[in-house]
Design a protein around this nucleic acid. Structure first.
Lengths: 206, 206
DNA sequence: ACCTGAACACCGTTCAAGT
DNA sequence: ACCTGAACACCGTTCAAGT
C-alpha cells in the first residue's frame, strides 16, 4: 500500500493524493485504508520511510568527510526520484526508525572522525534539511504576463528596481542544482573541518 | 484584510486559517474576500508580503559581511513572530516585489563587497532558506508512550540502536535555536569570505 | 452591475447499519 | 466481529438568483 501511495504521488502529485484517490487506485473502498494506517499523517510517515529506506548505503570505512558527503548525496539521489518528498519530510512531526538510522549514521560519522559532541551537534543543525539531500529553492520567478510587449516593459521596470538580481540571472544561465548543492555542502564540510582542526569548543560562543 | 489574516493565523494556526474562517473573523460573507484576492494562494502571497515587509532594514554602509548578517538576522526576527510563516514562504511559487527587495539587497551587498557575479550566485543558493531567517528543524522527537515503564524500556532500546544520537541529545540539553542559527550563518559567511579572498572562480568546479 | 446564498466537487474521518 | 456505505463537518470556488 505504501509503495502504491509513493507511485501514485509520483504520478499525480502530492496534492492530488487523497485517501479516496489512493483507495480507488488500489481498488478498495476508502475506509479499508484505515486497517493499515490510523490516519493520513501515518500514511505520509510511511511514504517517507519508503524513500529514506531507498537511500543507497555508502561504502563504510571512509573518513568522516567522505562518509558524510556520500551519504548526503545518496539521500539526494533518492529524494530527486520523488519531487514531492522534500515537502512531506519537512512536514513530519516525529522521526521513524528509518529516519533515525540515517541521522545516527551521520552523527556517528562525525564522532568517528574525532568531532566533539558539541561540534557534531552544531554541524548537524548547520546541515539542516541538506542532510536529506535537498535545499528549498528560493529563487522563485515573478509572475510573467503572456503578452510579449508587456513582458518586455516589465523586464525594463524589473531591471531598474532589481539591477543586481537581473545581472546575476542574466550572467548565470539556468542553475545547475546539483552543482549548487555540492557547492554548499562542501562549503559546510570545509567549515566543519576547519573548526574541528582548530579544536573548536562551545566556549567560543561570540 | 491581510493584517487580519496574519493575526488570525498567529492565533489559530495556519491550518485553521480558511477563507471561511477569515471571512467570519472580519464579519463578512466568505465570497466577499474574492473582491480583494483572486484565490487563497493570493491571500497567502499577501500574508508573506506583510511579514517580509516588517523586516527592519539594517543600517546601510556596513561591509558586506555585516550587512548580510544583519539583514538575515532581521528577517529571522520578523519570522519568529509568526511561527507559520516559514512553511508559507516555502510554498510560494512566485516572488512578490517585497520578496525581491529583500533578495536584491542581499545580492547587492555581496556585489558591493567585490564578490564576482558567480560567487554571489552560489552564495545565495548556499544561504537557501536561511536568507529568510529560518532553518527547517530536523531533529524530530520520536513518538513517546505515555506509560513511564514503557518509556524507560523504549529509551533503553533507543540507546542501543542510536547510541550517537542519544549521546548527543543527553550531552547538549535543549537546543538554543538562535545560537545554532548564528553558528551556521557565520560558518557560511566565513566560507564565502575565504573563497572570495582566494579569488574563487567557477572554473574551479571539482 | 454588484452582491451573495446556495450549490458543486471535493476532503479526512466517524459511525451505524449490514453481513 | 468485521466490513462498508452513508453521513458529518469541513474545504475552495462556481454560479445563478436576487437586489
Amino acid at each position: 500500500m505504501l509503495r502504491a501511495a509513493v507511485t501514485l504521488a509520483d504520478e499525480v502529485g502530492i496534492d492530488a493524493l487523497s485517501m479516496r484517490s489512493l483507495a480507488q487506485r488500489i481498488g478498495v473502498v476508502p475506509m479499508a485504508l484505515y486497517k493499515h494506517v490510523a490516519n493520513k499523517e501515518e500514511l505520509l510517515d510511511g511514504m517517507v520511510d519508503v524513500i529514506v529506506g531507498d537511500i543507497d548505503l555508502p561504502t563504510p570505512g571512509a573518513d568522516w568527510k567522505a562518509a558524510v558527503r556520500e551519504r548526503v548525496l545518496a539521500a539526494r539521489a533518492s529524494l530527486l526520484r520523488h519531487p514531492w518528498a522534500a515537502r512531506v519530510i519537512e512536514s513530519r512531526t516525529s522521526a521513524s526508525p528509518v529516519v533515525l538510522d540515517h541521522m545516527e549514521a551521520l552523527v556517528a560519522a562525525f564522532r568517528a572522525g574525532g568531532f566533539s559532541v558539541d561540534l557534531t551537534h552544531h554541524a548537524m543543525h548547520a546541515l539542516g534539511t541538506r542532510m536529506w539531500g535537498f535545499t528549498q529553492e528560493v529563487f522563485p520567478t515573478p509572475a510573467q504576463p503572456a503578452d510579449a510587449d508587456a513582458r518586455a516593459a516589465m523586464l525594463g521596470r524589473f531591471a531598474a528596481r532589481y539591477p543586481s538580481i537581473v545581472e546575476m540571472a542574466s550572467t548565470t544561465g539556468g542553475c545547475d542544482d546539483q552543482f549548487e548543492f555540492e557547492f554548499a555542502i562542501d562549503l559546510l564540510l570545509d567549515g566543519f573541518e576547519r573548526l574541528h582542526q582548530q579544536g573548536w569548543t562551545s566556549a567560543e560562543r561570540s
